[in-house]
């Protein structure tokens, strides 16, 4: 798909950010087209989460630019990212443990009724609807999310990202706490969202999942981009080589 000449939905160009001398992300460029899934791979500490946090507004890059549909944009905080229809499932899930599922799902975008008061009943009803689709076993609507299992919490975070008609979806290890059945459901969800035309960045440690779900894969090591490959053109071992050795496979260069 990267062969097509059309402008990417999102391009992060030459992004760098360091924390007290550590170059967490070092001149990295990645992009995603509408209807495409781009995998982001690399060891722990490679800088994947830090890179996508520059897109989600959690961090501000020290240098580099972000383009959406070819237009340069400034994403200074999470509000800016949401305004550009960028939704993020963080690795840490970013849930307020003391609030229930509906409050977390709508956090920052609450439904209000007459007089500007929260419409908790409608928010719960909407939450029940989307959870019925994403995780039909989910029942714990009226307890703080601290009382939920890891998988249930993860499904709340996923629901929050897909509820609001995202155009750009960032998924940072979305299946980390899930069992095989739930992981399969997330895979189906990703394929459905892709069909709907979203551009998706998927960070995942499971190379097989990446090979199955992604169109392209960008590999990072020590904050630097090793390279981006078309998944069709490479084998699992090629990608493993990129992750471990930090070398582009010969045929993809």
């Amino acid at each position: 798909m990267n062969a097509e000449p059309k402008t990417p939905l999102v391009e992060m160009r030459d992004i760098s950010i360091s924390f007290g001398g550590i170059k967490a992300v070092d001149h990295v460029t990645i992009d995603v087209h509408a209807g495409e899934v781009v995998g982001l791979l690399g060891h722990n500490g490679a800088g994947k989460s830090t890179l996508i946090k520059c897109l989600s507004g959690a961090y501000r890059a020290d240098s580099g630019d972000i383009y959406i549909n070819g237009q340069k944009v400034v994403i200074a905080n999470p509000r800016d990212a949401r305004a550009h229809n960028i939704e993020t499932i963080y690795q840490t899930l970013a849930l307020a443990d003391n609030l229930d599922a509906a409050s977390n799902l709508f956090l920052g975008r609450e439904l209000v009724g007459a007089g500007g008061f929260l419409d908790d009943a409608r928010m719960e009803a909407e939450t029940r609807k989307i959870m019925a689709r994403l995780n039909p076993n989910f029942r714990k609507f009226n307890v703080p999310v601290s009382a939920l299992s890891g998988g249930q919490r993860q499904s709340v975070a996923i629901a929050r990202a897909v509820y609001f008609d995202a155009k750009i979806l960032i998924m940072d290890e979305p299946t980390a706490a899930l069992g095989p059945h739930e992981t399969q459901m997330v895979a189906e969800l990703i394929q459905e969202l892709k069909r709907q035309g979203l551009g998706i960045f998927l960070i995942d440690h499971d190379i097989h999942a990446v090979m199955k779900l992604c169109d392209r894969a960008s590999v990072m090591k020590n904050g630097q981009l090793v390279g981006t490959v078309n998944v069709k053109d490479v084998t699992d071992d090629d990608i493993l080589g990129m992750i471990i050795l930090g070398k582009q496979p010969a045929k993809a260069q």
Binding site: G57, P78, A94
Partner: peptide
């Protein structure tokens, strides 16, 4: 309450 439960999550929620 969100800020009390998880300040980072509150910030990331905009």
């Amino acid at each position: 309450f969100a800020m009390g439960g998880n300040p980072d999550a509150a910030e990331l929620s905009g």
